[in-house]
């Protein structure tokens, strides 16, 4: 979501607080300066509840009014998210959350819950990189990515990539500073299922070293298993000057961020070719219109071609280029 959590590169916040906070010593405390029976217990509450859907939990913080977000402590942000998700999952009722219970005060106000819910409603019809708009029942689909399928990576280390431009009410981990910027793929994180799906002491998980979490831009919507898209992830290296310009950032600096395959495209003026899981040729480009030619002489726009474009098998051989 666009909002005040995206303060990347803001230097006006002054000195970093609490730099002298001591380390936790084994056996002494959960963390010096945290009180075990409320900050410690609350850390447990949000950590455990968030594991149900981390992206949805993160979105819950971002849905706060920007003014309140900016004035809230870290724990206050998590309290808002926990309350919203308890309400939506049926774990607690509106009355439970917004009314005093005995001598205990209300946990959250009705207005901010209502506000967050209405924003989520507005996000339901949004387009998502790689998937476009959802259908009438708000389900996303893609010719390249199927739910429950672990897709083969289509980019390789060393490839030059551009991060797609998007603006969203939903949650994404493609933050504004990366959008539209060009970087290089540092590492490919292939995806694979965690096996077995229900591990036990007798039947432990075999660690494959592959990534296994779903695409946050859709996962945050909490729409269930048929909307869990496990998509290859890439560590992308950006030069700080490409993010911030020549002078704002420190020199000789690189920023590494993890981006999901649908958040990547070719830098302007180039077409990326790859084969999908079914062996079909996939063309991707960041800007311009795709043209084709049978003979490199006569070029015509490919009608309706959008990136990523799957070249249908059985077509006569030909050539592609971009009209910028």
């Amino acid at each position: 979501m666009e909002g005040p959590h995206n303060t990347h590169g803001w230097i006006g916040f002054d000195e970093i607080p609490a730099k002298s906070q001591p380390e936790a010593k084994p056996g002494a405390s959960i963390s010096p300066w945290l009180e075990p029976d409320w900050e410690g217990h609350f850390s447990a509450i949000y950590a455990i509840l968030s594991t149900a859907n981390l992206d949805r939990a993160r979105w819950g913080r971002e849905l706060m009014h920007p003014r309140n977000y900016s004035n809230s402590s870290y724990m206050e942000l998590w309290l808002r998210s926990v309350a919203l998700n308890l309400l939506e999952s049926g774990g607690a009722s509106l009355t439970d959350l917004t009314s005093p219970r005995g001598s205990l005060p209300a946990i959250i106000d009705t207005a901010s819950l209502a506000r967050a819910s209405s924003l989520k409603l507005a996000a339901r019809g949004e387009s998502v990189p790689g998937f476009g708009r959802p259908d009438a029942s708000f389900k996303y689909s893609s010719p390249l990515y199927k739910p429950g399928v672990y897709n083969k990576p289509r980019w390789k280390a060393g490839d030059l990539v551009s991060a797609v431009v998007q603006t969203t009410i939903g949650h994404t981990r493609e933050y504004p500073l990366y959008r539209g910027k060009t970087g290089t793929i540092d590492k490919v994180y292939p995806v694979a299922p965690i096996q077995p799906a229900s591990p036990s002491a007798q039947n432990p998980v075999t660690y494959t070293g592959a990534y296994g979490q779903a695409y946050p831009d859709i996962e945050c919507r909490g729409a269930g298993d048929d909307q869990r898209f496990v998509i290859p992830l890439y560590s992308v290296r950006f030069n700080a000057t490409d993010i911030w310009g020549q002078e704002y950032a420190e020199p000789d600096m690189a920023i590494y961020a993890d981006l999901w395959e649908p958040q990547l495209t070719s830098p302007v003026g180039s077409i990326h070719e790859s084969l999908d899981d079914q062996g079909r040729l996939v063309l991707e480009w960041g800007r311009g219109s795709l043209q084709s030619s049978p003979d490199l002489k006569l070029w015509e726009d490919v009608p309706g071609a959008l990136s990523p474009y799957i070249v249908q098998t059985g077509q006569p051989s030909g050539f592609f280029r971009l009209r910028l």
Binding site: I16, Q21, A240
Partner: peptide
Amino acid sequence: GIQPVWYKSRQYRSRAVCAPRGIIREF
């Protein structure tokens, strides 16, 4: 273990991506 308070601060989160040497000097 549990993050130090400074790691969760907006000050650190915002500045780390543009002025990491300055952060090291500050520490």
